[in-house]
Each structure stands twice: as structure tokens, then as C-alpha cells.
Design a protein around this nucleic acid. Structure first.
Lengths: 230, 230
DNA sequence: CACTTATGGATTGTCGACATTACACAACAG
DNA sequence: CTGTTGTGTAATGTCGACAATCCATAAGTG
């Protein structure tokens, strides 16, 4: 009866836990990284054969990788015509941020209902403050993402987390395409501690208002900077 | 020598504007329909070779179709192991409805801000009432979806619409797996007109509360009915 | 010259075959 | 009988080649 193979040795004996990553995933990761970093700008055409030769793989993994990115909403396909990095319109940018606001407000409400611990958030706040003082843009962006990621995770809602992650891909892309001068680092960093404080106080209305305002500040942008029709 | 009829008229000459639908899309549509109708229950394994032979196509379109469904969140893949219709846990069902609530609340708020016309909503309300009086479950479900779809569309937010559509796929699936006896048709139908009225009155708080309550009523379910670990 | 009609090239769509991996079961040793 | 090891099978992963489609451009016609 080997319905469930109970292993006497519960350890993974392999020294090398080499996760066997399918090629399509590797390709998708590389392409996604290129898009999110802004190296592959919106509107750039993605030709399967060229990518296949460039990465020394067959077209099949390339196709599937591109489809993954399409699912992420980063690429769009026109049948028999071509595939390209999805153009970013000003409207899409605005919608992305407004949806993010709704997600984060939902997270705040759930955190207050469930009474999640706030230590993580405080840590990320400190990291942001340090980054702002050092005028380190990359570090601040990383800490900011960590903060909001933690915020969503504390909401304990897998579907919300997945949706937020997907949405945040575009946030990443947008920020990469932006001019960093648009951001006031100290102001961005300073926005966060009050949110944590409001959460600690259990003040839902204040926390919601703070997180909303914070998101809206980030959403303020110059459409001409990134919006492209092609 | 093309046999194509030469037409002086600049009109689209083909009587049949046969949209050339890729096989992967046709396959994806068929599979999605089967899943959403409950014919393919959660946990069911999807074997590429079997499906390929069954539908008389190669494995490539099948693979890509399954990946589309994976993007829809209806299928999950375990590398080198197999693919199956994603099992529905009680938690996922609850999360699906709670996220839907957030989406619809967002739509209500935007509708009130933008002052969208409400005629469409009233029409769908009437259709639901008729369906409830005729005890026609299918018609009520259709009218209900039309109502909520219209609600989201009136919010004039493409990203919200896309997210809602994706989420509603699972709602479809859940409803198909449910016992229809769980629903009180007249009650469900009766929930909607007050929402429209609140919108017409411009009463944001009341509209939000009504839509929230309505969603939560729908979310009430017996986990054992649909939840499956395998 | 204006307008229609071929034609060529480039790109995606589909196919069948082979490679790789993981699990289950049998064979075997203690 | 218990635990380990080998082997087979079934599934996905990857590949190269061919077909279908669209677009741009050139050729032809009044």
C-alpha cells in the first residue's frame, strides 16, 4: 500500500537543491526584467525568431515566455503581425495607481480587523529613512516596495497578494521609465511612518486616508514622460 | 489568378467576416467553458496528449491554451508532473468574493463621482425580477452578471474591468458547482433595485453598504459543497 | 497618372519527433 | 518483513521544419 510514500528520511538528501527551471521561465524572467528595468521600452517589437537565436533556444520556449508576459499584461500580441511591449498610455498609468490605492486600502482595513503585527513595517520604514538620508534612490525604491509588499502580506489574503504583485509589475515599469528627479526622496520616506502609527493606533480612517494620499502623490506624473502611442 | 471576386465597392467584400481565431484560443475557449460550467471539476487532470488527440490538434496549441487558462487562474501546472483544474479551497472562494466586493465598491464610488447614466442598470434589474418571478435560475444568473458587468463598465476603468472579468471567471465556476437551491431567487433579484436607487440619490454610503451586503450574501456558502483538496 | 492586382518577404501558427524528468512498481538485500 | 535500489512508463519540456497569414512594394491596366 503505497498510497502516500512516507519517507523515513524527511530530509532532502541532495546537496544541490537545483530547482529545475524550465527554459520558458528563464526566458520570461529575462524579458520581464528587461521590460521592468526600462531597457525594453513600451512599443518595442518582440520577434520570436530573433529572440530565439539571441538566447540560443528554440522558438517554443520563447513563445510560451512571451505568453507569460502577456498574462502579466506587459506584452501584447497581434495575430500574424507581431508582438510588442505593451504601450503605456497616460490613462493606464492613472488606472494602475488608482487600483493600487484600492488594494492598499483593502489591506489596511484587513490588517486592522485581524490585528497583524507591525514590526516588519517599522523595519522597512527605517530602511527607507536611511535610504532617503543617503540620497540612495535604488535603495529607497527597494525599501518602498518591501514596505508595501509587507503591507499586502499582512492582510493575509492570497488573492489580493497575487493581484497586487501583478499590478506592481507595471508600477515597477512606470518608475523605471520615470525621471527619478520627479521624486522627493525625503517626502516619500516620510509618508510611511504615519501610516504605521495610524495602524498602531487602530485608527482606520486616518490610516486609509494616509495610504490613499500617499498613493495619489506617487500617481502624480508627467504623462509625456512615459506615455507612448506606439 | 485569384478567384477572389473583384468588387468595386470599398466595402469589406467578404460576406463572412470570419475572424481568424487561432487554434489555441478555440481550445482555450472550449476548456474554459467546460471548467466554468462545472463539467471539468476542480482537481481534474489535464493531459496534453489526450486533449490533443481528442480535439485533433497538435500539442502546441493545447499547451498554449492551457497556459492561457493558467493565466486565468483556472488551471495550475506542476512541472513534469501534470496539469489540472485548480482545486477550489474554501479560503479561495471567500477571498474571491471579498475581492469582488472591493471591486464593486470601487465601481460604485467612481460611478457617483463621474455621474454615469443608470438606465442600463435599471433594465437589468427588471430582467432579474422577471427571471425571479418565472423561477428561471439560468436567466437570473445571466441578468445578474449583466447587471454587475454594467456596473463595472460604468465605472469607466479598463483595468478594473479586466480584473473584474478575470475574477468573475471564478465566480462563474463557483456558482456552477453550487447547488442552485442555496439561492433565494427573489431575494437576490430584490437586492439590486435599492442599489440603483441609492446611486440615483447620490448616496455613496448607502450604495456602498448595499453592494457590500449583497456580495457578502452571495459569498455565504457551504464550503463542503465545492471545496476540494484534490 | 490613378487605381487595381500580383508578388515577395517577414512573422506568427501549427505540427510531429525527440529529450528530460518524475513517479510507481518490481526486484532484491538485510 | 522492512527498507533500498533499479527500471519502466507516462507525462511534460524542447526542438526544427513547414504552413498560413499579413504587409509593403512593385507590376500592370484603364
Amino acid at each position: 500500500m503505497t498510497t502516500k510514500p512516507m519517507l523515513a528520511a524527511p530530509m532532502p538528501p541532495d546537496i544541490a537543491p537545483i530547482e529545475n527551471v524550465p527554459l520558458r521561465v528563464q526566458v520570461a524572467d529575462r524579458l520581464r526584467s528587461a521590460i521592468l528595468s526600462g531597457r525594453l521600452r513600451p512599443g518595442t517589437g518582440l520577434v520570436e525568431t530573433a529572440l530565439a537565436e539571441q538566447m540560443n533556444v528554440s522558438r517554443a520556449p520563447i513563445r510560451e515566455a512571451i505568453q507569460i508576459l502577456e498574462n502579466d499584461g506587459l506584452v501584447e500580441t497581434i495575430a500574424y503581425k507581431g508582438k510588442r511591449v505593451k504601450p503605456l498610455t497616460a490613462r493606464e498609468v492613472a488606472e494602475t495607481y488608482s487600483l493600487r490605492e484600492v488594494f492598499e486600502v483593502m489591506a489596511v482595513r484587513r490588517i486592522l480587523e485581524n490585528g497583524a503585527p507591525l514590526d516588519l513595517l517599522r523595519e522597512h520604514c527605517d530602511a527607507m529613512t536611511e535610504a532617503a538620508e543617503a540620497d540612495d534612490f535604488e535603495a529607497l525604491v527597494a525599501a518602498d516596495e518591501a514596505f508595501h509588499h509587507a503591507l499586502i502580506m499582512l492582510a493575509d489574503h492570497d488573492l489580493l497578494l497575487a493581484s497586487w504583485k501583478n499590478l506592481y509589475l507595471r508600477i515597477h515599469q512606470i518608475m523605471a521609465l520615470r525621471n527619478r528627479d520627479e521624486h522627493n526622496l525625503t517626502e516619500v520616506a516620510g509618508n510611511h511612518p504615519p501610516i504605521v502609527q495610524a495602524l498602531a493606533d487602530g485608527d482606520a480612517d486616518r490610516a486609509v486616508k494616509l495610504i490613499s494620499d500617499h498613493t495619489r502623490i506617487l500617481a502624480a506624473f508627467d504623462p509625456a514622460t512615459i506615455a507612448q502611442d506606439l
